[in-house]
Amino acid sequence: MDNPFNDRLRPAPSHDSQPYWDGLKEHRLLLQTCADCGTVRHYPRPVCDQCYSMRVEWIEASGHATIHSWTISHHAFHPCFKKDLPLTLVTADLAEGVRLCAPLKDAPPGSLRIGAPLRVGFETVDDDLTLPLLILADTP
């Protein structure tokens, strides 16, 4: 109980989403894809809204993305994020056509604009949890 990460908000993966979380642990961003018509969907869910198929395949995302929108939070809405303030959260358009919401690390002030290129990274929280993060693509 003395691990401070015990206090953080943790996902409760479902049968539908377990492969997504397992992929993150291997530092791979996996996206759910319809095994019948190929439509990519996110967040993971049981049915393809294009053809109603429930057959699923998982593809690995390229990691290329652009900024769709963002917010910089100055208030910790959960105590585990106090150390991260100000917290830049970005909604990113992935090259695969779906969106990812994740923290943007190491962004110089004023560097955010819609369409700015990003790449996907990973933050290993502990043995059980890895979270996605975003990095400006021109950041070394």
Partner: peptide
């Protein structure tokens, strides 16, 4: 709760801030 709260997007204020930012831009 599963996908956004663990990365820090927890409150309506944060969700609507992203909507407002997009509108502003």
């Amino acid at each position: 709760g599963e996908f956004e709260m663990p990365v820090g997007q927890i409150a309506p204020a944060q969700l609507y801030a992203q909507m407002a930012r997009r509108h502003m831009m």
